[in-house]
Design a protein around this nucleic acid. Sequence first.
RNA 1: GGGCCUGUAGCUCAAUGGUCAGAGCAGGGCGCUCAUAACGCCUUGGUUGGGGGUUCGAGUCCCUCCGGGCCUACCA
Length: 572
Amino acid sequence: MARHLITSALPYINGIKHLGNLVGSQLPADLYARYLRARGHEVMFICATDEHGTPAELAAAKTGEPVADYCARMHGEQSALARGFGLSFDHYGRSSSDRNRVLTQHFAGRLADAGYIAEVSEKQVYSVDDGRFLPDRYIEGTCPNCGYDKARGDQCENCTKQLDPTDLIDPRSAISGSTNLEVRETKHLYLRQSALKDRISAWIDSKTDWPILTTSIARKWLNDGEGLQDRGITRDLHWGVPVRRGDQPWPGMEGKVFYVWFDAPIEYIAATAEWADANGKTDADWRRWWRRDEGAEDVTYTQFMGKDNVPFHTLSFPATLIGSGEPWRMVDYIKSFNYLTYDGGQFSTSQGRGVFMDHALEILPADYWRWWLLSHAPESGDSEFTWENFQQSVNKDLADVLGNFVSRITKFCRSKFGETVPEGGSYGPEEAQLIEALTTRIRAYEATMQGIEVRKSAAELRAIWVLGNEYLQSAAPWSTFKTDPDRAAMQVRLGLNLIRLYAVLSAPFIPFAARAMLEAMGTADDRWPDDVAAALAALPAGHAFTVPDVLFAKITDEQRAEWEERFKGVRQ
RNA sequence: GGGCCUGUAGCUCAAUGGUCAGAGCAGGGCGCUCAUAACGCCUUGGUUGGGGGUUCGAGUCCCUCCGGGCCUACCA
């Protein structure tokens, strides 16, 4: 038994997340966590909402709520949706927690003591009417290059030219439209990543088994131009972790907060502390996951994220941990994902384009989404969601291959033997062959799951389901029943045991259906099939079961057409 | 502009430089009747984006062109 720490990238607080967000981090992380637990490992699976930053303040302003209230409410909503999707976090924390405030200030203090913090005075655009400094992209104006009148201060979307806010003609606040802007001097703290470049670079170089997507992004940032740049870690905002040097005030930084990307990864640690607080545990209980000097030496730490998060997890957060000089557990493996696209374009939270977690659960059970998203996870490149593909895959894989298998064997048994595992008969060569085939497939499934090869794992699992149908077809208990009822009884007994086996193997992908299958089989035995032959004897003759309701109703053409129509425009 | 990823059957994807480029779905045929008209078996289908090169051998390595995507450090 090993100890596995798993974190999913933190979903940002401003609104319901779409399916692309889900498949890029939380869902594959959950798959891995569930698998490792099923194999008997000790797992700490952590996620949290990322609550600080300008977009949260603006989203709250839009609803008229105080930002703390807004975040609390949205955390509740995201938390409920996470449960709805079966995301099995050990704790779903909040980056606005006290634990994170203290820890973030602690890291800043340690970094300052070690000489990795620089104070930099810089000029930024201030909007007098909004009463706030504006990030570059919150300034709009006319592009000096192409004349586009909605160019942002960081880049013109029309001609893709990179800009400075001061380049814009007739600049205005993207928040209020106010043109009452001025450039003001402000002081900020910078994390001196450049001073840690060699250590980070050596660390990245040691990770030879990471996805190319992960390391190539990291190397680009490390080596591009003048190499890894220092990064501002404070902002002139009200909502965030107040800048303090450990537990001491930071002269000259009053009223400022840490940058959201500084405190967000620290929340992985803080959320584990929140877990301890919420479960009556001690500090030692969470520190044994994170401190190498307090028990975390044998922890394997895996992070899941979309590709946009990679720079922060390969560079900034490691810089924070290394620079602290303290023995924190560093990540062992970063699994990164490309994007899911929606009918040819991007999913977009800000534009409300695509299918969102709340709507998805309104129209179909979580397992439909989990199965499709995981079996089409954007691992090697972006992958596309289309309703047609979704309908086809789900109907074929879940309803026809798995659901129908459960249905045919339970109903046949009920009509010939009653709702009890039948007695009699013994294995022949066909059964030996099945067990051998299952064993081969299951070992392959374990290997791809261990390697976090999500799509391949789904394909292996599906192939395991198919073996059941192949067996039933060739064993044909409906025929043998007429001539050799004992033999038919053995075949059906094996089939019923396959249902339990499939429930166990499938639970990481489709936990709700797996539970329904176990319940129908009248068992709580969810032991992993290390020995397939033994696993297929778990339900003995005489064991009572029930015929379950249809596990997966098919998606009809009418439903598909309706949803295609409903979700083709913009949310709300 | 720079960097990275990507292009394989109608669709979604596989293939440590090494048999005849493979699966699933879709299409075609046959079988079965326990089952959610479900399942099983067989089968059609590819100049691996174009062109050049290295090699005994290239989907895989190199060059080049074309297409798609992402990132480019003050959104997160």
